[in-house]
């Protein structure tokens, strides 16, 4: 079985059909990431195709200093953020629109939500700016610094945005439980 580097080398040498092997390997994580950020299946499919096409066109600039998936993930996030960019501008005052936390525990509502799909649907209903940081943190397991670097924001801003996203999730899950 050829490694990613070997396949990339052959594609650069002119064997374009070998790129299909890379697509087969990474289509699932790319589509999952795109779908999680965009929350739209058709749009995610288009974005995933665009990711691979852009990766192919820029393959000669890829250096094997890092993992191929890291490079591909950056392309995926950039393309998805371009699609949701008009919706990602969030004012710091937006937190006021979030209902204040009540004293009731939502532990049970979350814990009893055995349907993970329900929580996932709730995540998809978040505003894109909050959804993207949640996806990068909990799907891609990126730390705050990596997220801030990828989104072009400061680490405190990412920290606050993740906190607000979680707060919104807790509120909405509590409403669903009721």
């Amino acid at each position: 079985m050829l490694s990613d580097q070997q396949i990339i080398g052959q594609v650069i040498k002119g064997k374009a059909e070998m790129f299909g092997e890379l697509v087969a390997r990474y289509q699932t994580p790319v589509f999952r990431l795109a779908f999680s950020i965009l929350a739209d299946r058709a749009e995610a499919e288009d974005a995933a195709q665009e990711v691979f096409i852009r990766a192919y066109s820029k393959l000669s600039s890829y250096t094997d200093s890092g993992k191929f998936w890291g490079w591909l993930r950056r392309i995926t996030v950039n393309i998805c953020l371009d699609k949701i960019r008009p919706y990602t501008v969030i004012s710091l005052d937006d937190v006021n629109e979030i209902p204040a936390q009540s004293g009731d525990s939502v532990y049970e509502s979350v814990a009893c939500s055995t349907e993970a799909t329900e929580l996932r649907e709730t995540i998809y209903q978040l505003p894109p700016a909050y959804r993207s940081v949640i996806v990068l943190k909990y799907l891609e397991d990126m730390n705050y610094a990596e997220i801030a670097e990828m989104l072009g924001e400061s680490i405190p801003n990412v920290r606050v945005r993740i906190h607000r996203a979680k707060k919104m999730l807790r509120e909405r899950m509590k409403v669903c439980a009721q």
């Binding site: 697509v23 289509q27 699932t28 790319v30 589509f31 999952r32 779908f35 999680s36 499919e45 995933a48 195709q49 691979f52 979350v110 814990a111 939500s113 993970a116 799909t117 929580l119 996932r120 995540i123 949640i134 996806v135 909990y138 799907l139 999730l169």
Partner: peptide
């Protein structure tokens, strides 16, 4: 729960 929900198996189209 968020980690579990986001990593749940998902039907992927053929790309």
């Amino acid at each position: 729960n968020i980690t579990t929900a986001l990593r749940e198996p998902m039907e992927t189209p053929d790309l």
